[in-house]
Amino acid sequence: MIKSLGSNEEPLRKLITIVMTDFYKKLSDEGRSSVNNKLLYGGGRLVGRTGGQFTVAYMAGNMILRKATSTLVYKNFVRFGASVALNMVMLQGLIEEAGRASRRMKSKYPMLYYKVESQRLDMVYFLVENYLEPYIKYINSTPAQCKRIDNELNKIVIGKNW
């Protein structure tokens, strides 16, 4: 865990951790308990809310990072090509997409935007936007919607293996 904190994926990991921490905080006590029990089954139980929150954010972050770093956009962004002109065009396209995703976040989820923009994480959002969208929608849901989602989450977690 400690080794991964200083890698080139650190901005993505920070962004994912912020979102997953907010998601975990908004879960009901039953939802947190279900998630903790499912994720930590056989791995020992965590004491306290902060430890569970950190572990959930870390484990979810690893899963999302694994998916995000295997996508074509990320591979092309990190890898160098043979043609300088092609790289410049591709880089311009990535910057443009990052800007569009940042503006989408600002208009749809302003509280999250201002939280991550201060750390300059808004421009990496486009790399994990699709993976974080359900969690961000939950964070921005009304209490009544969250209660319904919590009930469904408990049914899924208790009824099926992840």
Score class of each variant (00 low, 15 high):
Y24P: 04
F77T: 04
D29P: 01
K38G: 04
R32G: 01
A57F: 02
L40N: 14
G44K: 01
Y41I: 00
K26E: 15
V19Y: 11
L86E: 11
I16Y: 09
I16N: 12
R79Q: 04
E96A: 12
R49P: 00
N87V: 01
D22C: 03
E96R: 12
D22M: 09
A68C: 08
R66G: 10
K25Q: 10
R32D: 00
A98I: 03
L15H: 08
D29N: 09
M63Y: 12
N8K: 15
N36F: 01
G42L: 00
R66D: 15
R32H: 00
Y74T: 01
V19D: 13
Q53G: 09
G51H: 11
E96L: 07
S7I: 00
T55F: 06
V73N: 02
I16W: 11
L39M: 15
N62A: 09
D22L: 12
M63S: 12
M90H: 08
E96C: 04
V19L: 04
Y74D: 02
M20N: 10
N37Q: 12
E9M: 12
L65C: 06
A101C: 05
L39W: 08
E9S: 12
S70C: 03
Y24I: 03
V89F: 12
N8T: 14
G52N: 13
E97F: 00
G51Q: 14
M20P: 06
Q92E: 12
G81R: 03
P11Q: 05
K26L: 13
F54L: 04
I18F: 09
K67D: 14
E9V: 11
G81Y: 00
S28E: 05
G42E: 01
M59Q: 15
A101P: 06
K14L: 06
D22T: 04
F77M: 04
L86F: 03
A60C: 14
I64H: 11
G31T: 02
R66A: 14
R32F: 01
V19Q: 09
V73Q: 06
K14N: 15
V78D: 05
R79H: 05
G48W: 08
R66W: 07
V56T: 15
V35W: 03
E10D: 14
A101V: 03
L86R: 07
V78M: 11
M90Y: 09
I18C: 08
G61A: 07
S83P: 05
L46K: 11
Q53T: 12
L94T: 07
I95M: 13
V73R: 03
V78A: 09
Q53R: 14
S83C: 13
R79N: 03
I18N: 05
E9P: 04
K25R: 13
E9L: 15
V56G: 04
D29I: 10
A98V: 02
Q92R: 11
I95L: 13
N8G: 05
S83T: 11
S28T: 13
L65M: 13
S33Q: 07
N36W: 00
R45V: 06
A60V: 13
T55P: 00
T50Q: 11
Y74N: 03
M20E: 14
E96Y: 14
L94P: 00
L40G: 06
A85M: 07
G52W: 03
K14Q: 15
I64C: 06
R45L: 02
D29K: 09
N36Q: 07
L46H: 05
N87T: 11
A82K: 09
A57I: 02
K75D: 06
T50W: 03
A60W: 13
G99R: 07
L72V: 08
